[in-house]
Design a protein around this nucleic acid. Structure first.
Lengths: 190, 190
DNA sequence: TTAATTTCTTAAACTAGCTTAAGTTTTTTA
DNA sequence: TAAAAAACTTAAGCTAGTTTAAGAAATTAA
């Protein structure tokens, strides 16, 4: 059903077959096609999403009306608008599939019940949130540290396979540069 | 001893007097003077720090040799280099007191034992990490969304009292602008 | 396999924010 | 309370990255 999800859980906490059985009644799997949305601006975020297969992006529309991508999520990553999810308030973000994807959904309402049944999951999610936060602390550093050009070169050399899975204008948006400037950088030194 | 810390915990989880007694054998309080360090570049981060009173900052030295502040932590906030803490590798960051401060220290070695004794703390830290990550998701948005000038005006109007506690060059560093440019912005419209 | 749509490129004019350098004001220390 | 150190200001010249506009190439749908 969702082998990556189960394997991922087992990397951080121990789970019996019975635990997994219980878990299965609290989460569901959802298939979404490329360009479909899990969340749109103005909606309240309903769930925390684990990418079983595929690729998601998080973005918002800025005041100029252009998409600003803030995150991607590949296989084995969690994605959500955690502020909207936590306080159950309308989101400014969109969550959308970049490729046809399978996601494991933990709905907000079910999450508390799930933690009561399987308190060990608090530990798993504590580790996930700490990892995500640690990554975002590093990202702030890179963001300040490097020029846009250096940021681009760094990204391409660190994640070459990922770069092949997304159109160039999405990479530009994620890096916070215009597609025109990215094009210039590639011409200069591909 | 650390009333803010205990009160903060009790906002998120229930704790008996006995729990608090156990807790007290796993954490310690540390007084640090203005400009003293909790962590310096090259050291491995040894603890997670809760600001009982005072004000801390996190920064690194960039390739031009200037300090780049990435975070501040006021009363009731946690601060650490979570990547260094998690993987116990040398840090690129400094953690320093901006004012004389009292911090509650949860040492990395003790943390796992503490979670075994008081598993409920996993929940508390899960919530703390989720809050921190949610805040950082919003911060990425503001960072992209606003010009440096708008970012400055936003910050000052949201946190006027905080702005009074830090020197201007630290605010400039946090906002990612030069002190000279900040000075110009203030002249234009204070 | 053609048309429609989406994505990418080129180049020139422009601007937000930086650099440099010198001077002034405020805070800390002796 | 004087001297030293730290923090802030001013202004001119500069550059990384944007904007605008038009066209070319690649995907997708019919």
């Amino acid at each position: 059903m969702y082998p990556n999800f189960i394997q991922h859980l087992k990397k951080y906490i121990s789970l019996t077959d019975n635990d997994i059985q219980i878990l299965s009644t609290y989460v569901k799997i959802k298939s979404i096609k490329k360009k479909e949305f899990l969340l749109e601006e103005g909606q309240t975020c309903k769930g925390n999403y684990f990418v079983e297969t595929g690729l998601l992006r998080m973005f918002y529309i800025n005041e100029k009306g252009t998409e600003q991508i803030t995150q991607f999520a590949l296989e084995n990553w969690w994605l959500s608008d955690y502020m909207s999810l936590m306080i159950q308030a309308p989101s400014k973000f969109y969550l959308q599939a970049v490729e046809d994807s399978e996601v494991v959904v933990v709905e907000h309402q079910k999450q508390e019940e799930l933690f009561e049944k399987l308190p060990r999951l608090e530990r798993y999610f504590r580790i996930m949130m700490q990892r995500a936060y640690a990554a975002s602390q590093m990202r702030v550093k890179y963001f300040h540290d490097f020029s846009k050009e250096e940021n681009y070169r760094q990204f391409v050399s660190l994640f070459p396979k990922f770069v092949q899975r997304i159109p160039q204008y999405m990479l530009a948006s994620y890096l916070g540069i215009t597609p025109e400037y990215l094009s210039e950088l590639r011409k200069k030194n591909p």
